[in-house]
Design a protein around this nucleic acid. Structure first.
Lengths: 366, 366
DNA sequence: CTGAAAGCGCTTACAG
DNA sequence: CTGAAAGCGCTTACAG
């Protein structure tokens, strides 16, 4: 197999201070990356070190470090300016490895992404988080959870992240690992002391209460069944149960389906109709069931009702459009980050907790 | 704002070799992470260094390094065993920072995730990639692209990743940055020398040809319009154009819409019907248009046809189910990783390029 | 107000 | 077959 267009050549370490007029001798050992294609095309990459900055500013590396890390109050203004100036002229970026080694922990925050079914919101949430953390000098990197925690261990132990965060609760195994490796960990359980209960219970209850208000007297909870983990379903189901109890309704019927026409038809056929209101795990589940109900000739929302969760874009274009629950994803991410910053000892005085605002979006299916 | 359940306390550096019976003195400087909650609850984390391993195995750190990095052939079998044994007993994980500093580049590969609309496949793809790279001792971490390349610069310059990869072409700015920082970069353009043309052109052509075969004589291309970048739409449109030319059909009409009922209705109303075949950017767009056409009373697929792209789970449960194009995401990821490994100088003799197998999924909408 | 020195954990010639 | 030593780039007491 031939590969083409390797876009970069090996970095040459060389004197970054071009004004100085000479180049640091190349290290005698061979650079580790030796692939070199079209090297003539590219200017030799130049990576400045704190030593380069120090030399250009005419100070010591210690001084550079102090000033660039915000402990520069005690230095002469003039010195400070020379240093920051030199740093920006050289496009100086401190080496994470060097800092990590010296300080014992890096400026990296790792977000663990569970193997679970997220909406397209995931990206938005972490985008926001990336930017927020960047303003604090922290770098957010995502790590996809795998079956074993071995890769997580590599990341955590190897990179010494400042913290590990997750939008879903950590598994027992993850918690143990993080603990034994001495890493700060934050998940929704730790995000806010206000949240005493699993928010999923509230979500399920919100969905169920809506259906009850609309007159459905027998409730169904439809789980999503796929290869992935489901950290939310249990809580949602519990919320539905509570509402049934509250209103003296019979226990909810529990069904499970994948996003698949046969699954959906079987699920619909298993429900006692007409008259049921179906609380769905998410909008995808609701969409599948809606189609199945339509195929079977049930009238929606008169003979059967559905409520989804997530307020996905597609939920607006089903026929009829899906009743669902929306929420402010940014707020969810914001709260997680706030908790993490707080735990990291950063000041969060300016960060009021945001209301995630779970809210009904009443539309055509219930 | 009060935070609760900070799950970990600060790591204590201490002697990992518990058998030795004493603890390395704590460093006199304060550990950087000072937050300490419920520390009594947790065993003090123990992080072994190569020195600990060396001591326990009764060899030098140099020897440990050689053996653990696969350059141990020349050592006595007995020595090798003592070392690997000691390493596993201590749960030794080499410090990424230390290695990076010593070697000049880390074992990290960064995948840049563009701010674009992906299917839920993204996760699967990178999951696979994470595992594949792990078997080579490389750690995959995801970085979300932001408007500015500053965060990328921090990551790249700070972490000295072995390579930066992306499933979509890098932007000019990203390329310049990567180049100037001397980092190996791989994107689909560099993934395979066999791919002379943008695969998106082929995809668009595949969709269009299918519609032509089914008898639609005027084609429409429906772009997805949202806040995100669209690295694919241009190529797909071009593919449709070529097919029109090939078959002597008029130029395709171009429409744009978000996943929104009003957008979709307006889009449908702007098309000359009956008789058009609509090549859709993805299954979501197709779903939105399908609903709009149904609302307007057009018969699908007789009066208007739709073909989506992605073969999402939801595409199976629309009414009628969506005709679409599927492909092997794993193959796409596999090829990208192969290219990256090759460029990294790893042996890829055992990695035949995989066929991504774009394939029609004929169903009910065309 | 500033710098010399030590040390973080690793790897790599090099010497034996 | 194995180890002593230097060095990667940074930060932090400490001394002046």
């Amino acid at each position: 197999m031939k590969m083409s267009r390797v876009m970069q050549c090996a970095p040459e370490r060389r004197r970054a201070d071009v004004n100085a007029g000479w180049y640091r001798a190349l290290p005698s050992r061979k650079p580790h990356l030796v692939t070199r294609v079209n090297s003539a095309l590219y200017a030799e990459p130049v990576i400045a070190t704190s030593e380069d900055v120090a030399r250009r500013a005419g100070v010591s590396r210690a001084t550079v470090s102090q000033i660039l890390n915000g402990r520069g109050q005690r230095f002469a203004v003039e010195t400070r300016e020379r240093v920051t100036q030199a740093a920006s002229e050289l496009e100086y970026q401190p080496s994470a490895a060097g800092r990590t080694l010296a300080k014992g922990s890096s400026d990296i925050v790792i977000a663990v992404i569970p193997y679970t079914t997220f909406g397209g919101n995931l990206q938005d949430i972490f985008q926001t988080a990336t930017e927020e953390l960047a303003t604090r000098g922290l770098t957010l990197l995502l790590h996809l959870a795998t079956d074993s925690t071995a890769p997580l261990d590599r990341v955590v132990t190897g990179m010494k992240p400042r913290a590990v965060i997750s939008l879903t609760p950590f598994s027992r195994a993850e918690l143990d690992l993080l603990k034994s490796r001495g890493v700060l960990a934050f998940d929704p359980q730790s995000a806010s002391s206000k949240v005493r209960t699993d928010p999923n219970v509230d979500i399920g209850a919100l969905q169920a209460r809506y259906l009850v208000d609309r007159g459905y007297e027998s409730l169904v909870f439809a789980h999503l069944q796929d290869a992935r983990l489901d950290p939310f379903g249990e809580g949602r189901e519990e919320g539905v149960r509570r509402v049934c109890t509250e209103h003296g309704l019979p226990e909810p019927m529990i069904i499970r389906l994948g996003i698949d026409p046969d699954d959906a038809l079987a699920a619909i056929d298993s429900i006692k109709l007409p008259g049921a209101g179906v609380v769905c795990y998410n909008d995808d589940v609701a969409t599948a069931l809606l189609s199945a109900a339509t195929i079977r000739g049930w009238k929606v929302p008169d003979e059967v009702g559905f409520i989804g969760m997530d307020h996905t874009p597609l939920s607006a274009v089903t026929l009829p459009p899906l009743s669902t629950v929306g929420y402010d994803q940014r707020a969810a991410a914001y709260n997680l980050i706030t908790a993490a910053l707080h735990g990291l000892g950063e000041s969060v005085d300016d960060r009021e907790p945001m209301d995630v605002k779970f809210a009904l979006v009443p539309r055509g299916t219930a």
